[in-house]
Design a binder for these strands. Structure first.
Length: 420
RNA sequence: GCGGUCGUGGUGAAGUGGUUAACACAUCGGAUUGUGGUUCCGACAUACGUGGGUUCGAUCCCCACCGGUCGCCCCA
């Protein structure tokens, strides 16, 4: 038996890394005052069709959709924002006194795709959403948080790429201009781009094959199509980033794959070697129309999401090891039946005092028990044989130094606590 | 969804159309009858992804499927 394609089991040895990273992310959220929200991992299919966009690849070909026993169309969530916004609307969080509403989430997402390293069918995203503010400062805050998520773990090869998609009208005007511009040379473009022309003309601009086609140089830029408000908003966002000491690159070709984005769009990429086709660590942007699209009041929003899998890949690419505790406080070695009984009692007592302790459960000989203790990197080994038993004490050996002394059982806990 | 490539014990990794499928690491035992990490010796292992086909005979050749991986599409 194997697990389904594109899924993975996280086993001891790596779950520790996940716990560490998740813990850091939760702490980071608190520092920026984002509170956790937990939404279901499945939703009505319609939510994603309306929220993410009916024409997007995610909705058209990547959703895990099924009909439940009540004949409802259900979809395993492919991303987090739609659910968070749905919940925001359903529970009328816009009515709470403290606005904007700043939320974070962490959990599995599902997309039916051809798996590759860094691209699972079930993967885990951490993301934040700030709803109810159209202040460029909060755009900058979200980007700052996104970068800090990586920096606090020691990552260095990071690049923040930003763009403005403008409002809906600017976007559509630009799109139309692109279609007209490239239509005249359609036959000269690669097959992919011919398909992109109607579907997503913006993507033509960063095609790897047609990069040197002369029409690229003269293609209309989104920035020319921004109206005054959009242009000014983008300028303000950049000013905030500057003031906060955050460096970035403007890429007019940056496109996001979900329909709900407008104005600010950004991605964080890794420069590290050996990252292959996957270079985007996280992405996000503003979605001012989404809340009202999903039945709420006109409410601006911005957010971003990162994948834990890719974050861990980036750590590996930069050779960063996380400070994970691998040792155990104490290991009890018992010799003989009587000693084993007593050992169980001692183990129980020490654990109740908060000391991390384990013992042998395979009837191993002393030498093998010592090896087990070594493997666990036990700081102290307690040896309990007939001699010790008779004297109501236990031999305590500090493994690093090899020093050993006999300790009376009634002061054992205090002794260990003072040493640990 | 498209194209390339790969799939041998717990792990890494040889190899062959034909009797017992190397080797290394790990594991276990012994040298050392109650004290670990080294060394030496020995032992163990549900191993040729699955299903068909070709063949007297397939781990090896062919096909399909499954899974990994790389690239494309797209994305986190």
């Amino acid at each position: 038996m194997k697990g389904p394609r594109g899924t993975q089991d996280l086993l001891p040895g790596v779950t520790e890394k996940w716990q560490y990273v998740e813990d850091k992310l939760k702490n980071l959220s608190m520092r920026y005052n984002y509170q956790e929200i937990r939404t279901p991992i499945f939703e009505h299919t319609e939510l994603f069709q309306r929220g993410v966009g009916d024409t997007t690849d995610i909705v058209q070909k990547e959703m895990y959709t099924f009909t439940d026993k009540g004949d409802r169309s259900i979809t395993l969530r492919p991303e987090g924002t739609a659910s968070v916004v749905r919940s925001f609307v359903q529970h009328k969080l816009f009515g709470l006194p403290s606005q904007p509403t700043k939320l974070f989430y962490i959990g599995p997402m599902f997309r039916y795709e051809r798996p590759q390293q860094g691209r699972m069918r079930q993967f885990v995203q951490y993301g934040v959403e700030a709803l109810g503010s159209e202040d460029p400062a909060i755009d900058a805050e979200v980007m700052a948080l996104a970068l800090e998520a990586y920096k606090q773990l020691g990552l260095k090869s990071l690049k923040l790429v930003i763009n403005s998609l403008g409002d809906i009208d600017s976007r559509n005007a630009h799109r139309q201009a692109l279609i007209e511009h490239f239509s005249s040379v359609k036959e000269e473009l690669c097959g992919d781009c011919q398909g992109r022309l109607e579907k997503n003309p913006l993507r033509i601009l960063d095609c790897k094959k047609d990069r040197n086609h002369p029409s690229m140089q003269t293609a209309p830029s989104i920035l020319e199509y921004l109206n005054d408000y959009s242009r000014n908003y983008f300028e303000q966002v950049k000013r905030y980033l500057d003031v906060m000491g955050i460096s970035y690159v403007v890429d007019q070709n940056l496109v996001r794959g979900l329909d709900y984005y407008n104005h600010t769009a950004f991605e964080i990429m890794s420069d590290a070697e050996g990252f292959g086709a996957i270079t985007t660590l996280s992405g996000g942007g503003r979605y001012n129309g989404l809340v009202s699209d999903l039945g709420g009041p006109e409410t601006p929003g911005i957010g971003f999401a990162l994948s834990i899998e890719r974050l861990l890949m980036a750590l590996e690419a930069e050779n960063i090891s996380l400070p994970i505790k691998e040792s155990i406080d104490c290991y009890v070695i018992a010799l003989g039946e009587e000693a084993n009984l007593k050992a169980a009692a001692i183990v129980q007592q020490l654990r109740q005092q908060g000391i991390q302790v384990d013992k042998d459960y395979q009837n191993k000989k002393m030498k093998a028990q010592f090896k087990a203790a070594d493997r666990l990197q036990a700081k102290f080994v307690l040896v309990l044989g007939e001699d010790e038993l008779a004297k109501n004490e236990v031999a305590v050996k500090e493994m690093e130094t090899g020093n050993q002394e006999n300790i009376k059982l009634d002061v054992l806990t205090d002794y260990l606590i003072s040493k640990l």
